[in-house]
Design a protein around this nucleic acid. Sequence first.
RNA 1: GGGCCUGUAGCUCAGCAUGGAUAGAGUGCUGGACUUCUAAUCCAGUGGUCAAGGGAUCGAAGCCCUUCGGGCCCGCCA
Length: 627
Amino acid sequence: MTLRLLFNEIRSAVQKISFDLGYPAVVFDVSESSKPEFGDISCNIGFLLAKPLKKRPSEISESIAALYRTQKGSLVSEVNVHQSGYLNFTANNSVLVKSILESSTEKNYGEFDLGKGAKTVVEHTSVNPNKALHIGHVRNIIIGDTVARILHKANYDVNVLNYVDDSGLQVADIIVGFLYGGFSKEPPQGQKFDHYCGDVVYVNITERYETEKSLAEKRVLVLKELEEGRSEIAKFGDEITRRVLEEQLKTCWRLGVTYDCLNFESQIIRSSLWKTVFDKMKSLGIIYLEGEGKNSGCWVIKSDSVEEDKILVRSNGIATYIAKDIPYAAWKLGILDDPFHYKQYIVQKNHQVLWQTTLEDTGTRLDFTGDRVITVIDSRQSRLQNIITKIISDFKSGKKSYMHLGYESVTLSPDTAKTLNLETGGKSVQMSGRKGIYVNADYVLDILGVKTYEEAKKRNPELDDASLVKIAEQVAVGALRYAMIKQDLDKIIVFDLTESLSLEGDTGPYIQYAHARAVRILEKAGKTPEFGVSFDCLTTIHERGLAKAIGRFDIQVEDSARNLSPKLIARYCHELAVSFNSFYEHVKVLTAESPEMINARLCLVWSFKETLRKALDLLGIDAPDRM
RNA sequence: GGGCCUGUAGCUCAGCAUGGAUAGAGUGCUGGACUUCUAAUCCAGUGGUCAAGGGAUCGAAGCCCUUCGGGCCCGCCA
């Protein structure tokens, strides 16, 4: 069992006693005590009944406590009433610790069946394939990947999609660069192709549009060719975007992120999806052909608020940006006949197959849709995403639901902007691919890797280079992933290059270090911990605290899945590591006073190590054995 | 003008959904702990008008209202 059972036992007992005493039913809280001196668990029922019963909270709690003491379950050893009015419980230490440690040996420890196998789609990344991933994209990718992992742990059947906008303006820009801007198709020696496209070609061409009119004209032409397909230019575009995509995916894989299927915008455009959705919207009266005013001749989405109507199809018959997203949203929910076949893109590092859509008949039909679709995009897109959500709900697709998981953007600190020759006057600055204002993800990982390599070498001079490189990369990725996920989605992250190199305090490496310490204790013990024994000897505050932290895992998984709040798992990992480090400093394991004590503490260390590893896995962070 | 987000310690942030015990971390600064299971660690100290004002409540950082500061979005661009 975990702490959850203790909560449940107390909750139902208090409920029953309150009923037996003739008290009115109230929704009361059973939660962990805010301070150790208050016991393990606290209940606020006294406060809630104070008014209806016209008694002091402590008086009510006392009457419940008196009865509780006569009929304690197996998990509670003490019931106390604090003068403030709280009803406090102390757990039966030996039963609690033993059951937590034993459950933690189960392979699926921490799983909680919130989803009941519900089919869920998580779409994230979806970066235009004309540039390398920068640190802002990384936040999207890490949020999406972490949410997918957590939902999976909470028993949702998750499909992860990456939408590739291979026929948009941004791709057209680099194609113009190659065909008419004089850029070689091959990057200079040693440069990744995506970096080359983004850092050199894209930025340069965008600048030249200002002065070279002919280039700007080519841009319109190329865009048209890309949308229509078939032509030589379109084929060339396809070749380029696939090369960029492959490089982008390498960065994602480096971050430990994998996908189930790649969706290509060009194929959505050329499929029947748009026509079907367009007709459906017409027949539902969601959209109409504007006959007058400034939008005359356009198909527009009716707005029921004070906002202006949103144009879906221009007067020249070409669909707008949002129009491409609606059929895709409907496809993700599986409310349209699937026009695609599927073929394998690659087998990813974790042996998971990455599929891609195709319009060719491959004979392979698969289902990557879900009854619930979560689209991870930064909150600047909220307005458009709300429109899509509204339209999809108008399709009346039963229990199916579409939602936008938004998050605030990543900006660059004044100091980091300065390294890009940008003077911001002390303010942080929004990134922009077009203007070249960004920090590439690979670059951050590389310099982090150099630092973590040095640190690892300093501490483990006897390790061979390959091991050190591996550890360094794991720690670098851990540092970056943790930094991107630990704070609330609604908070802007101001990225500072120097600060990102900090590996102490509330960071990924701090947590990974706790794991490595635990592994070393287990290694040095030279024997396997034996669990079928009494753990009554684990009584110090450090041992109890660590055991309770371990017992909280499934509750954290449930919370974070229910609220789509990945940071809760990050906070949990940190809390586990803090508990362990405190234990480590105050309690000796290998030199404990008796073999029984050594074994009991080894079990605790083992449980901690396994639980932390599983929790870190939800964050996509590796737990190295040494560092 | 409208919409979304945000304001808590010098700095970066938890806590707010579901009101309750002395508002917590990290970082910074000051001091202490490595012949010890790895000091990427631990311990102690320092640091707060929870933006401001009002309201409902026995009780507010949290709920309601108003105001102020900061960010983002509102194109026949994507």
